[in-house]
Simulated assay, not measured.
Amino acid sequence: MNIDLTDTTSSKVNSALVKARRAAGYPAIGMVLTLVIVTDEGNHYDALKAASQASKEHPSRILVVIKRHGRTPRDRATARLDAEVRVGSEAAAGETILLRLHGELANHAQSVVLPLLLPDAPVVVWWPEDAPDKPSEDLLGQLAARRITDASAAEDPVGALSHRADTYAPGDTDLAWTRITPWRSVLAAALDQKHSPITGAVVEGEEYNPSSELLALWLAERLGVPVERDVSAGPGITAVRLMTKDGVICLDRPDGSLAELAVPGQPDRHVALQRRTTAELIAEELRRLDPDEAYEQAVSFGVQRLATRGTVPKLGTVPTHAPVRSAELSTEPSAEPVAVEDPVEPPAPNRAPAKKAAKKTAKKAPPAKKTAKKAPGKGPAK
């Protein structure tokens, strides 16, 4: 069932929702949480499709907040709420409400969302793109137990990841971290087996891929070894290599689907590492609503520890040679910036032994004889 409401209020939306639920034949509420999606008109379809698929695993009330500030001063001065209520087969395994906030009302989305939240149920807020600078201080973010962002949707993904580390609060998470869950699981299982101590690691992936940076940070924080970043053509993360005294533990996924795990002294194994859809990522995040301590430790380890090295291919180009080593992650604590001084020349080597040897050879050498040359037709030279 689909109900359209124009120039309405939150109370009228709630009444229409109850009426639609009774007409569909299930007056009881069977949802486990409220998922609030904050997006725009151009991206709400993909976000709603992913959330609807995730609701099959987590039945929830989905509130899609679409802010339409208006282009003209007159549109920005008005305040109007248009809603669309979907119940039954139109809303997968839950309830869906599209809220279009026009004009000044777009700045007060929390006042519209608050009456529509499920009673005594957790709230999750998801920004598919254009996340606020501090999600935990956002008026909608303050209503939520979990706040989901996506650094890969930003113009500068690595910069956005660094900003997430500076503004982290318990309950924050990012889909760039969710994407590396299968990688972390396979690597942890490989390290559970008997192996020699790890001396270093290399993470290979696309240049502008925040998941590669997070995986490198996680390995450096957990293993306490230097981790280097190599740039490849992708897709996503392509390989992880762990250096040991017995050889290299390599997890290689060149095609974004099937990976090969090579462990010294064991036969190579194939591992399914399919790149997952947004719906699968959201479903994973909704499985646990407590703060993600592993994400906090990894992102707080410091993206600024990645120091650029060598030449990095430009965005959109495919390197025609071997992957370029572009960054190295140090495990030592970061220090304050130090002013660069003039380079100091190294001390001159000690030449005293060489001088003594030269004197000895000079004493042993016979003195040179002085000879006089006669000019033709003249007497001896004076």
Rank of each mutant, 00 (worst) to 15 (best):
A352D: 06
E228S: 13
V344K: 04
P380T: 10
G171Q: 08
S11K: 13
I282M: 00
D156P: 10
T311P: 06
E260M: 08
S10I: 06
K314R: 14
Q304P: 04
C250M: 13
S111H: 09
S52P: 07
A93M: 01
V225Q: 05
P347K: 00
E206D: 08
I148Y: 01
K56Q: 11
A322I: 14
L219H: 07
A201D: 02
A279S: 02
Q53Y: 10
T167R: 14
A23G: 09
L251H: 01
A153L: 11
I97C: 02
S11I: 09
G379F: 01
T78S: 10
E84H: 12
D166L: 13
T149P: 03
D75C: 06
D150C: 11
E90P: 02
A294R: 02
N43Q: 14
V263H: 01
T199Q: 08
I180L: 03
H102F: 08
S162R: 14
D138A: 09
A154S: 15
P347G: 05
D290Q: 02
A24S: 12
I3H: 09
R253E: 01
L99H: 05
Y295D: 00
G316I: 10
A352F: 12
P128T: 01
A121K: 15
V158N: 10
R164P: 09
K382A: 12
W218L: 00
G302L: 06
R71M: 12
P115G: 04
A83W: 06
P235E: 08
E296W: 01
I198C: 03
D290P: 02
A375D: 07
T199K: 09
A121I: 05
T72W: 11
A47E: 09
V32R: 12
M1F: 13
T371A: 08
I29W: 12
A365Q: 11
S232A: 11
E84N: 15
A298G: 00
T317E: 15
G159P: 11
V158I: 15
P135E: 02
A272W: 06
P122S: 04
